[in-house]
Simulated assay, not measured.
Amino acid sequence: MSARTPLHLAAEIGGTPHYDAGHYLRLARLAEDGALDYVTLDDSFARPGLDALAVLARIAPATDRVGLVPTVTTTHTEPFHVSSAVATLDWVSRGRAGWRADVSTTGAEARLFGRRPAAPPAELWREAGEVADVSARLWDSWEDDAEIRDAATGRFIDRDKLHYVDFEGTAFTVRGPAIVPRPPQGRPVTVIDATTGPAREAAARHADVVHIRATTPEAAAAVREEIRDRAAAHGRAPGAPLVLIALTVDLGDAESAPESGPVRGPRLAGGGTYFRGGPVDLADLIARWHHGGAADGFHLTPITPERDLERIVNGTVALLQHRSLFRTFHPGGTLREHLGLARPASRYATAKTAAEEA
């Protein structure tokens, strides 16, 4: 990877649960000030607190540029509802939505719903991939110009530009079309954490952005290559998906002393995926790993968001910007534009056009 390849940075704004949307809004605005690509808000059925997707829908109108990516659990939920909720977030954020697909593996969480018992991770991630697939189809089920909104004739929509998806998965079927018009981005950005093996196939087939954890730049580059090879086998374009290294950070310590030897610069604590040090050390690590071609960027999870996110933005990011390694402003208005991802055309409109030409 060239050192000139754009560096992508994202951050988690969760942590100790808060029941005040203003808390998350302050953190999202701070990330926006640093020109971060997006913020994530983690969630699960076992975690107390507010619903992540609803919180980000609340703060979307109060932010302007930063992408908003809630965790959405695909197990025990209805794919049609997931698709509608994420599309709604894209509308209220004016094209800045994504979603991080996750699964629920425990019996305790299964009993909260009472629909079915817990299942093996491989089975759940296969289902998650199907949810990602049908969601994309539902977002495509309205052509971009399907809405007429002609008050004089009383016509709201062109029915010929709505399409049934007729999707049949291993655990569900969805007929469609969607009830929400096609999102501003066409398809909101799909993010999957592919650190574990069972998630990698779903990530390779369906994710726009993949998070991974790795202990060395070489290990990260190997996982990135594996995921992209799998993606290419499914007919995806070269360079897809983007791969970000997920790193937990604790910026409560002082900067480290310079090291001697062939490998200079900060290292991960205990050889793991946990960074402890200062903002300058973190900037050095990010620059070294990205320059070496380990990944397309980093997803940072602060140990203490209220303290560490400020140090990430005003310390680490500011230093990377000073070194001309990270942008100083968002390049566009949508999350896809931040990430350099094209807006996809509706597969049904494309197929119809091809049939008409034939």
Rank of each mutant, 00 (worst) to 15 (best):
P217T: 04
H206P: 01
H290F: 08
G239M: 00
P238R: 03
G265P: 09
T248C: 04
G197N: 08
S256T: 09
A202E: 12
D253F: 01
R276Q: 14
R230C: 07
P262L: 02
E255Q: 11
A257L: 14
D296G: 06
A194S: 06
E218Y: 03
A222R: 14
R276A: 14
L268S: 02
L282T: 03
D208M: 07
R276K: 14
A204S: 12
L268T: 12
I192R: 14
V280E: 13
P198G: 10
P262G: 00
H290N: 04
R230P: 03
I212T: 04
R267W: 11
A240S: 12
R264E: 01
S256E: 11
E226Q: 15
R236D: 11
V209H: 07
V243I: 15
A207I: 06
A287T: 10
A294N: 09
G292Q: 15
A207T: 04
L285F: 14
I192S: 07
S256A: 12
A199F: 14
A202M: 08
R288V: 13
I286H: 07
P198R: 13
P258K: 05
T216L: 01
P266A: 03
I227M: 04
H299Y: 10
A287E: 15
R224D: 01
T273Q: 05
A222E: 09
A269K: 02
R224K: 02
A204F: 05
R228K: 08
Y274M: 11
L300R: 02
L242T: 05
V263Y: 14
E226D: 15
D253C: 04
E259A: 15
G197R: 15
V280G: 05
G197F: 12
G239A: 00
H299S: 02
A237H: 14
V263A: 14
T216D: 02
T248R: 10
G239S: 00
A295K: 01
V249G: 05
L300S: 05
T215A: 11
G297L: 02
G265L: 11
R288H: 09
A221M: 05
R264T: 09
F275Y: 13
D193P: 09
E226N: 10
A194E: 00
A220D: 08
L300A: 05
E225L: 07
R200K: 13
P241I: 00
P266G: 00
A219D: 04
V210Y: 08
T216M: 05
G197L: 15
P241N: 07
A257G: 10
S260A: 12
D250I: 10
Y274H: 15
P266Y: 06
A204P: 13
G271I: 01
R264M: 02
T301L: 03
A233L: 10
D281I: 05
G293N: 07
L300K: 09
L285Q: 07
R288D: 15
D253N: 04
S256L: 06
A269M: 07
A219H: 04
V223R: 14
T301K: 04
A214T: 02
A214D: 05
A269C: 03
A231K: 08
I212K: 00
L247H: 06
H211R: 13
T195F: 11
G278Q: 07
H211K: 09
A203M: 02
R267F: 12
G270K: 08
T248N: 11
G277F: 06
A202D: 07
I286G: 05
